[in-house]
Each structure stands twice: as C-alpha cells, then as structure tokens.
Amino acid sequence: MLLVTDRALLDGFRAGRPEALKAVYLHYRPRLLDALRAGFSFRSGEVWMRFRGYHSPFELEQAASEALARALLPAARASYDGLHPFADYLFGIARNLVLNELRRNDLLVPVGGDEELAPAAAGGLALAPEPTLEEREIERLLAAFLAEASPVERGLFELRFRDGEKQDDAARALALSRVQVRRVEYKLKRRLLAYLKKHGYLADVPRALLGAGLRSVLA
C-alpha cells in the first residue's frame, strides 16, 4: 500500500525522481518475486492453464526486474491512478509480460509426446510452490548444519536470517556488540558454504568447473 498511503512518494514516483523509483522498486520487489515464483492461472480459450512459476533464482530476478522496469516507465507511471494498490497494477504487468514472452519466444518448441501436451488435471489452489527436491535437500542440510552450530549461532540464524532482524536489534537480543554479530554472521555463512560443498550440494568451484575428467588430467 506504499504508494496509496505515501503521497509524497507518489508525487516523486509520478515525476520520475530516481530515489522515489528506487524506493518503489525495493518495496515491491519481494512480493513480486513471491508471485512470480508461485506462478498463476490463466484462461486459454475455454480451459484454465497454469504458469508454474520460476524455479531459477536468476530467471526469477530477471523477470521481476523487467516487470518493475515496465511499471516504472513514464507511460506506466502516468497510467497508475494512485488509488488502487500498486501491487495489483504491477502484478498485472508482470503477468502479461510472462505470457507474452512465453507466447512469442520462438525458441519454445513442443517437447515430448502428445501425452505431455495434454493438460493434466489438478485440483485446488497452488498459491505456494511445492518445494522442489533441491529445496528439500537444502532444508535437510541446513537442519544438520544448525544442529552442530553453537547456541549463539543458532540464535543469530533465527534473528538475522529467518526473521530478517537488523544487526543492531539482533545484537541487543543476543547481548552482543554489533561488531560481534557481524563477525559471527560472516563466519557462519562462510562455514555453511563450506558445509554445502563438503556435502556435495554445491560443487567445489573452480575444480568442478574444470569437470571431473579435466581434474584427473590436471591431477
């Protein structure tokens, strides 16, 4: 509701002031990412279809950026009435963008047999995407990693990452200084990255980039 309630920001947005545009971008991006990740339903002729959303974080970020870029163009800013939720306006732009791209991207060729082209029935609303195998794998690894972490690290993990608290607030809650919080956080993330590599979730780059065969060649 940012643009509906903050009239000064709305004025800046309409005038195309960079700081206002950036504030709008940063405010609406998280929800747009959620929406584009979850996908949406749409009607194709007489049938309902579903766009299942983006799984690749990079593709998701690119799609959200492009939708926001279009919503921030002068014509789009002028069309926004400032009375209805901007999020709805933005999601409409994002939705049309995704469908237009899927429709006109000539790189999209039918894949697989007829049975794959036939829409499969599915009931219910799929507002949150089903966790992928990859997401289940990472949940399991995270739980195991945290089980080995110290109480302070676990506390920091909850406050900073899960709850998104600011460093100052987390420091206060954990009775640490801000510098200490930063240090623990940095080390925790570094250890997690190493843990993910050790357990094969992430390839150990750059050796993996060379490929197993090349590794043996270079060994």
Partner: peptide, 14 residues
C-alpha cells in the same frame, strides 16, 4: 479467485 483447474506440465522450469 486463482482457479487452477489445469496444470501444465513442465512449464517455466528454466
């Protein structure tokens, strides 16, 4: 409401 009567297989998995 978001009436997902049909789900397309394998869409949008970049």
């Amino acid at each position: 409401p978001d009436r997902s009567t049909f789900v397309e297989r394998g869409t949008a998995a970049a």
